[in-house]
Design a protein around this nucleic acid. Structure first.
Length: 309
DNA sequence: CGACTTTGACCTGCGC
DNA sequence: GCGCAGGTCAAAGTCG
């Protein structure tokens, strides 16, 4: 593909994760890739703008958390056109966010479509009996390029693999990843109209770091957790004001992020021993009646095309 | 019984 | 064209 060059270069410089420092460096030169590193409070507020919440998993049926998880996190947007580009460059280690690509023409405003890609509980048909052509049509028409939603990689220092983020996910696969002793898990949002997916894997270089990659955008609100946890929007919003830092990292369209953000802001590092849980609702809670406007943080960090709410 | 996880097979894209 | 690796499917199993 002719796009290869233009894709790979940004990639190499983008989202380089320093496992030792537990930090991301931002080096992308296109508006296709932006990343920042921060703690979960900020991340949560930012993700919330996307329709995502982020909080440590603790009671939602996930593996039990051993005394709280770390709070370091990273965030990265990855627009990827699977079709033309190698989304996983051979040089990309498991600790790097699988690369990126070019921005595509596909609508990225929402991953919610009127016609969900498939019914996960489809009737009949084992993989053995699955007619190839049928499968093709089910997934994508043959010859049609596979379109992928924008992706955001999110790195979190946590002992828990699957971080609770306010949505319910159904695991639909797990794969061993090359160059990594840790398997990668694939989750899909349980909302039937929501096609958001996420991948969860651990950094092979720093097992304490969980790399969560979101693909797509939720078109619905967070849900209560039947199994325990509940992350309300209000709670998420209370962290909103903690996120101004984010605006210094993102820069869609008008792109103004630093050439190479050190990503070493002290407050964006996890404080050893500090649990996310303990920091979830800071005392600087914002009154509920001061909910951010649509143009709040979102305006800073989210490209208009990504917003659907 | 429904929701969810596990797991092996299959599909697709890419590099050689 | 072939092999590899990532991604997905779906039956079977598990759990509450």
């Amino acid at each position: 593909m002719d796009d290869k060059d233009k894709v790979n270069d940004p990639l190499k410089s983008a989202a380089e994760f320093d496992a030792t420092e537990s930090s991301w460096s931002l080096g992308a030169d296109s508006d296709n890739v932006y990343s920042f590193f921060g703690n979960t409070d900020r991340d949560n507020s930012i993700l919330n703008e996307f329709g995502w919440n982020f909080a440590p998993s603790e009671a939602a049926g996930d593996k039990d958390i051993a005394g709280g998880s770390g709070g370091a996190g990273g965030f990265d947007r990855i627009d990827d056109d699977l079709a033309g580009n190698s989304s996983t460059t051979p040089s990309a280690s498991a600790t790097e966010v699988p690369a990126t690509g070019k921005i595509t023409d596909e609508p990225v405003s929402s991953s919610c479509s009127d016609d969900p890609p498939e019914k996960s509980t489809a009737s009949g048909g084992s993989s053995a009996s699955r007619p190839p052509s049928d499968t093709a049509s089910k997934v994508k028409k043959k010859g049609q390029k596979r379109i992928r939603q924008p992706r955001f990689a999110f790195m979190t220092k946590s002992e828990v693999d699957h971080l609770e983020d306010g949505y319910r996910w159904r695991k639909y696969g797990q794969k061993a990843v090359k160059n990594s002793p840790f398997p990668r898990s694939y989750y899909r949002c349980t909302n039937t109209k929501c096609t958001v997916k996420k991948r969860v894997e651990r950094s092979s270089e720093d097992p304490s770091i969980v790399i969560t990659t979101y693909e797509g955008q939720h078109c619905h609100h967070t849900v209560g957790f039947p199994r325990g946890g509940l992350i309300s929007h209000e709670a998420a919003f209370t962290t909103h004001q903690l996120s101004p830092l984010a605006s210094q990292f993102y820069l869609p369209g008008g792109v103004q992020y630093p050439q190479e953000v050190p990503m070493s802001a002290p407050e964006s590092r996890q404080i050893p021993g500090e649990s996310v849980e303990a920091r979830r609702l800071p005392e600087t809670s914002q009154p509920a009646n001061q909910l951010p406007t649509d143009e709040g943080l979102l305006g800073d960090i989210v490209p208009p095309g990504m917003r659907s709410r």
